[in-house]
Simulated assay, not measured.
Amino acid sequence: MNLESKWKEQNVLVTGGASFIGSHLVDKLVNLGSKVTVVDDLSSGTLENLSESKDNITFIKHDLEYTTKEDLKKIFKDQNYVFHLAAVHGGRGFITTHPADVCSNASIDHHVFQACSESNVQNISFASTACVYPTELQEKIGSDYKLKESDSNPKNLDGYMSADIEYGWGKLNSEIQLLSFVKQYGLKANVLRFVTAYGPRENETHAIIAWVYKALEKMDPYVIWGDGKQERDFTYVSDIVDGCILAAQKITDGTPINLGTGRRYTVIDVVKMICKVMDWSPSKFDFDMSKPTGALSRALDNSEAKRLLGWEPQISLEVGLKKTIDWYVKSHNPKGSVNPDLLLEHNTKVAT
């Protein structure tokens, strides 16, 4: 993969840059020599996430949902590239229990797309999700089918499209909205579809960190949402970041690109891998069938990412889990019990 020297001295805006994936992207861009501006309302992100780059960036605290054209004009002025990751988001528990909140993304996205168009940004990268895919393609445990970009094609408005709950429909509609700016105003854009990203700085509403958190607290019985047979494609954050940067270099027509490993793991198997790394196991596992679980079997076909970007994942799940667990254990002190609110609300205040 070639992350070109073109990023040196480029003005780059990262919305949602204080959050999990955004902060890692900021660090990478700073290392590549970019002049980075971060805009974030800190609703889920933290300034601590930006500690590695804080002295080399411009930070703007701003709510992109409740904003004005004048504010947007100032923020987006002279930006060469925009990575748009700002969103109301979270893990399966959060997006399932906050259906109205996640619909706010339509406003956030429109404001960003319009600001990019009016500011003559060279390319905008939009963070989308595997939730844009039809759930009927993901209903069979043991399936070897990998979701293709064509399974949910925002360029074919006469074709069939479906998505996974309100969050997925919102992201799919925003992909369509972004393409409307490409068609009407000539905006240069690319779309990245993430799947179960994980790594340091992620919060406990997301699967991997929730499972690490439960192990750190020695939850026993250890409660797993669903029957544990659900299958997921886990992508480490540094691979996501590299894919985003490559897409910004090579895709300008709004084409969506899958960023996933294409490999499935069951929930119970990953939980057991985490317990092994942490050298602890519960006496038993309990399976809570009342909790949201999402699609039964999900993995992304990454052949287009390989063909168009020269991208493929570099970090195995085993290595990624070790890195993530090392970070979490070093940055969190066990309290002796699991706070259930922490698994559903990304702004829950707890001491670490």
Rank of each mutant, 00 (worst) to 15 (best):
C244K: 09
T67P: 14
V132E: 01
A210P: 09
K73L: 14
I165W: 13
S174L: 11
I257N: 04
D158R: 14
L178Y: 12
Q184E: 15
D301L: 06
S107T: 10
L47H: 13
H332N: 15
A189S: 06
V12P: 00
I21H: 05
S150H: 15
Q314L: 09
V112E: 04
E48N: 13
G16Q: 10
Y160L: 11
K54L: 13
K140F: 11
A163M: 06
G310I: 03
I224T: 00
G260H: 02
S19M: 07
P134Y: 08
K35N: 08
K214I: 00
E65P: 05
I315N: 09
I60A: 11
G90S: 07
A207W: 08
T324R: 07
R307H: 10
A305G: 01
F194Q: 00
D239H: 01
L25Q: 06
C244N: 11
N339D: 07
G142P: 00
N49I: 00
H110I: 14
N339M: 06
L85M: 11
L3D: 08
D253C: 07
P313W: 01
S51L: 15
F20E: 02
S23C: 05
D242C: 15
T97P: 13
I208H: 05
L178A: 08
Q10S: 13
K74S: 10
S331T: 14
N173T: 15
I325C: 05
E312C: 12
S34W: 02
D40C: 03
G22D: 02
T348M: 12
E139V: 14
Y222R: 03
T352F: 14
I315H: 09
W225G: 01
A87Y: 00
G262E: 07
G243T: 13
K6V: 12
E202C: 13
T129F: 00
E9D: 09
L343D: 04
W280L: 04
M161H: 14
E65L: 14
W280E: 02
G260P: 03
G228I: 04
I224F: 04
W169V: 15
S51Y: 15
T205L: 04
G16C: 07
G90Q: 05
I95H: 00
I325A: 03
S43R: 12
N80C: 11
A197P: 08
S117I: 09
I251V: 02
V271D: 01
E4V: 09
P292C: 05
V267H: 09
K218A: 05
S290T: 02
E312Y: 10
N153R: 01
G228Y: 06
S316H: 01
Y236N: 09
G93V: 01
H62I: 12
I57V: 00
D164R: 09
F76G: 12
I124P: 05
T252C: 11
I257W: 07
K330N: 13
N302C: 08
L308G: 06
Y328Q: 06
S107I: 14
K77G: 07
S303E: 09
H24A: 15
I257T: 05
V12K: 00
N339A: 04
S303D: 13
K6G: 14
H89L: 15
T255Y: 11
E217L: 01
S180D: 14
L216N: 09
S152G: 05
G254T: 00
M278W: 06
K276M: 11
C131Q: 13
A215S: 07
D27N: 09
S290K: 05
K183A: 08
T235F: 02
D78G: 04
P221G: 03
V350R: 15
I75W: 01
D144W: 14
P134N: 10
V36Y: 00
T293N: 02
